[in-house]
Simulated assay, not measured.
Amino acid sequence: MNRDSRHLESVLHRDIPLTREMGIKVLDWHDQQLRLYLPLDANINHKSTMFGGSLYCGAVLAGWGWLHLRLREEGIEDGHIVIQEGQISYPLPVTIDATAICQAPSAAVWKKFLAMYKRYGRARLTLHTRVVNAGSEDAAVTFTGQFVLHR
């Protein structure tokens, strides 16, 4: 785990206590991709699969964490990140530990987002997260979230 990963995990566990109870860990932050670990045991439902609410939280947190780390790389630490809207789909059950993965938007989208924030003190960014069962690349969950950064 690199320094950025440790920083984000500390922020999540301190500022969003639910993340501790869910057992969320930051696996890595590399090449503008964030990967979070979601353990089945702490998030299991009555069907012995991962609870949909936990999957939603994990997907939102992957997007929130991605934006937090990316802004930190840009030297922007004066803003507040909130989720404004989210759309989720659960095509496959999560039957074992899982990984939530958020990747970067296009460079053009990122550049426009930064310009809007610097000019107006508020900007919106759409991020995509997928959750996969451990050892698989097939998306068990797909999530699209609109995040707002404001001063």
Rank of each mutant, 00 (worst) to 15 (best):
W110Y: 11
L127G: 04
S136G: 08
A100R: 03
Y90H: 03
E85C: 02
A139E: 13
V109A: 15
Q84M: 14
T126F: 00
K118I: 01
N133M: 12
A123I: 00
E137D: 14
A123D: 02
Q103C: 14
I81L: 12
G121M: 01
A139M: 09
L114A: 05
P105C: 09
N133G: 08
L114T: 03
S136V: 07
D138G: 09
G79R: 03
I81Q: 08
S89C: 09
T126Y: 00
T129A: 10
A134L: 06
R119F: 00
Q146H: 09
I88V: 15
V94I: 15
A98L: 01
Y117L: 13
A140V: 11
T95W: 05
A108H: 04
R122T: 04
I101E: 06
F143T: 06
E85I: 00
N133F: 09
Q84L: 14
Y90D: 03
P105R: 01
V94A: 04
A100N: 06
R130Q: 15
C102E: 07
R130C: 10
R122L: 01
Q103S: 15
M116E: 12
I101R: 05
G79T: 00
Y90N: 06
F113G: 01
L114I: 05
L92I: 09
V148R: 14
K111S: 12
E85L: 13
T126V: 15
P105V: 10
H80V: 15
I101N: 05
D138K: 14
V141I: 11
V148P: 03
N133K: 09
V141E: 07
A123H: 02
G86Q: 05
Q84Y: 11
R124Q: 14
L92Q: 15
A134M: 03
S89L: 12
V132K: 08
G79P: 03
V141W: 07
